[in-house]
Each structure stands twice: as structure tokens, then as C-alpha cells.
């Protein structure tokens, strides 16, 4: 986890993922061409409960609070959220 800078991306987790990863928010450095799916897979390499981010369970992705596909390229300042399929209503 790094301090927020102008070149940072905010990553949020919700519900079961938030609990199992014991993480609500973290900050990563933006990298040219980095996609949301690539970020997810790189987080999975942290091991332990993070390994589930590598396709083991369905993970939904939102960028700047809009649902998106894994191939979405991330920009500095973006807010990325990873969460389980939604179950409201």
C-alpha cells in the first residue's frame, strides 16, 4: 500500500471480498496500459485469501462507479471497485 499521489488509482472492495481480504481501500500506482483485469490478477499474486481474485470466484468490476469489463484501461485518479455479484432487493 502506498500513499495517494497524482499518479495513483484507488481500489475498493465490498461485502464478502472486503471481509475476506480484510481490506476496504488500497492505493496502487497507475501504469500505462494497465487494465482492471490485469490489476485484479496482480493483486491475486499477493497470495492467501487474495488468490481467489484469480478467477476462482466471479468478481464484478466498476471503474468510477460504472460497471465495466476487465479489459478497461485504468487512468491515474480512477476509482476501481472489485466486488461479488450483487444481491440487493
Amino acid at each position: 500500500m502506498t500513499m495517494a499521489t497524482d499518479n495513483s488509482i484507488t481500489v475498493k472492495f465490498f461485502a464478502r471480498l472486503r471481509e475476506e481480504l480484510d481490506t476496504t481501500t488500497l492505493t496502487v500506482e497507475a501504469q500505462p496500459g494497465l487494465t482492471a483485469g490485469q490489476l485484479l490478477r496482480s493483486l491475486a499474486t499477493k497470495g492467501g485469501s487474495w488468490a481467489q481474485l484469480d478467477g476462482e470466484q466471479p468478481v464484478m468490476i466498476a471503474v468510477n462507479q460504472v460497471m465495466t469489463k476487465p479489459d478497461r484501461a485504468l487512468q491515474p485518479g480512477d476509482e476501481v471497485a472489485f466486488f461479488p455479484p450483487v444481491t440487493g432487493g
Binding site: M67, A81, P84, V86, T87, G88, G89
Partner: peptide, 29 residues
């Protein structure tokens, strides 16, 4: 109502006497 259930970012956790369980999304929904 139908679209809210499958697209609005809400998550339900069921509580029973001694357990908690994050509800799974249903294919029927």
C-alpha cells in the same frame, strides 16, 4: 425491481443464531 436486484451494488448477509452468510446471486434473478 428485477434490474435493481442484479445491477445495483447492494450485498445481503444473512444472520442466523450463530452464523453469518453472504447471500449468493441467483441464476433465476
Amino acid at each position: 425491481m428485477d434490474a435493481l436486484k442484479t445491477s445495483a451494488p447492494f450485498w445481503k448477509k444473512e444472520i442466523t443464531g450463530d452464523t453469518e452468510h453472504w447471500v449468493e446471486q441467483k441464476a433465476a434473478d
